[in-house]
Amino acid sequence: MGLLDQKFESSNVVITTMDDLLNWARLSSLWQMQFGLACCAIEMMAASASNFDMMRFGVIPRATPRQCDVMIVSGTVTLKMASRIKRLYDQMSEPRYVISMGSCSNCGGPYWEHGYHVLKGVDRVIPVDVYVPGCPPRPEALIEGLIKLQEKIRNESLVQKKAV
C-alpha cells in the first residue's frame, strides 16, 4: 500500500480483482507458528533477528496456532512430537501453510536409518507447501522458501476448480 500512498491528487478508486486483493493481503502478513525443534530453530531465530529481519515480509512469530498462517517446522520431528505437530496444525485456521525447514523435517535427515524415534519427513503427518533443504539451511534459504510460498499464494484463486 505504501506504493500508492500520497500518489493521488484526490480520493480515488482502485480497481483490482478479489483474487489479487486477498492473495496480496495473505502473502503480505504470514504470521508464523513459533516453535523450534532442533538446530534449525537457531537459523530460524537468526532469520527473525535484525540481520535478516523476516518481519519485513510480514512474518511475525506467534505463540499460538490460532493466530498463525504458516507453520515453519524447523528441526527434527520425533514420533513423540509428531502427534503434537498434527494437533497444532489442526488448530490453525485456514488458509494455512507449512514450510518444512531442513533435512530432518524434509526426510529424516541424518536419522534416516538408525533413528528409531524420528519421523522420516513431516509430510507423513501434515501437508507441506515448501521444502527448504539444508542441514541446517541458512537464513537466506529460509527467506527464499518464504518467498516461494508467497509466489504460491499469489497464484491462488477463489474460483472453484473445474474437473479436467
Partner: peptide, 28 residues
Amino acid sequence: LLPYDWEGHPLRKDYQTPEYYNGMKVPY
C-alpha cells in the same frame, strides 16, 4: 524420554525398530 505407550527399550542390541508407531510409518 520416550512416549509412555512406547513398546520395547531401543538401546538394547536386539531391539527391532517397529514398522508403525500410532499409525505413523517409522522406517525410511
